[in-house]
Computed example of a mutant assay.
Amino acid sequence: MSKIGFIGIGLMGQPMSARLLAADYDLMIWNRSVEKCLPLAELGAAIADSPEVIAQHCDVICLCLTDTIAVEAVFSQLQPHLKSGQVILDFSSIDPLATQKLANHCSTIGVDWIDCPVSGGVQGAASGTLAMMAGGRLEAIDKLKPLLANLSSRLTYMGASGSGQYTKICNQMLVSCQALVIAEVVAFAESAGVNSQLLAEAFSGGFADSKPLQILAPEMAERRFTPEKWHVKTLLKDLDMAVDHSRIVRSSTPMSGLAAQLMRLHAVAGYSDKDPSTLVNLYLEPHE
């Protein structure tokens, strides 16, 4: 069995790594804050001293990092130690053009770069039911399917390098706009004297139903903002990418543009590291 490296033990990386350990993969991990690695070490993971060590010892190197800058920084540490035949499997949500540049560089040394961002949140990571959207060389992705089956309920091949990242941007456009309108609906219902805690039940199975609705509407109605399962800053990052790339591909994204500005207002008000369920406060705080 291949030795697997996993870099980035955060909200998503921790449960994903735990599932690989439960499936008996030989796992080596690294995180900038080493204390986040300790629970996984108790489950059998080896802790690397640096990304370089992972590059030297692992066949498949998984990344689950915050943003493009973080991925590029880690790659600069991996690069001198990479060998032909290795695969970098990037679960991060980053800029598609940066992904294509990294993939092209890797191809010159016989390394496959697979962009494979995920959707499903911490709950999906813990239960192994993430939706994955992959871009890169199809043959390399096919070889990864047994590993990815431990983490996902659906893996969709989207096309060439960068396609997975563009698909994730589309996913985040939908999720972010839904989160904002759910917050608006909860606040509107309460202002109209409607019990907002019944909205998710009332809409269940109808055209307005969705996973974000069933998760966020009860949390917003109950002001249940912890534990944080994802962050406002993450949605803002992805909305900004959507707006930036809409100019590049010449596609209009007015809804996502407005969503980005509303998300930014919320982030600068002190909610950047908070759960998106706090978006309801955009509409409630002036009245409460």
Rank of each mutant, 00 (worst) to 15 (best):
N104S: 14
G8A: 03
A269V: 08
I215V: 15
N104F: 04
L279P: 01
S76A: 12
C177K: 05
H287S: 07
I88H: 06
T278V: 07
Q14M: 03
S256G: 05
T108W: 07
L148P: 04
C177A: 10
S92Q: 08
E219F: 10
S176N: 09
I9E: 01
E139S: 13
G5V: 09
K143S: 13
L216C: 08
I114V: 14
L89D: 01
F6P: 09
T99A: 01
I47V: 14
S153M: 06
S251P: 01
S272P: 10
I61K: 15
G10A: 04
L144A: 08
S92K: 08
S210Y: 01
G257I: 05
G162K: 05
L43Y: 05
V71P: 03
D275E: 05
C64S: 13
P218A: 00
E184L: 09
A73W: 03
S196C: 05
L27R: 05
W230R: 14
V232F: 04
F203S: 03
V185A: 12
E72T: 11
I141Q: 15
H231K: 15
D95S: 04
A221H: 07
G8N: 02
P51A: 05
S256V: 06
P96F: 00
L27Q: 02
A202H: 00
A103C: 10
I29H: 06
A183C: 04
F91A: 01
L27G: 01
L235S: 07
M28P: 00
A126P: 06
A125L: 12
V60C: 14
F207A: 10
P51N: 12
A126Y: 11
Y25M: 04
Y283H: 12
M132S: 13
V71D: 00
I29Y: 03
G135S: 13
F6Q: 07
D209L: 10
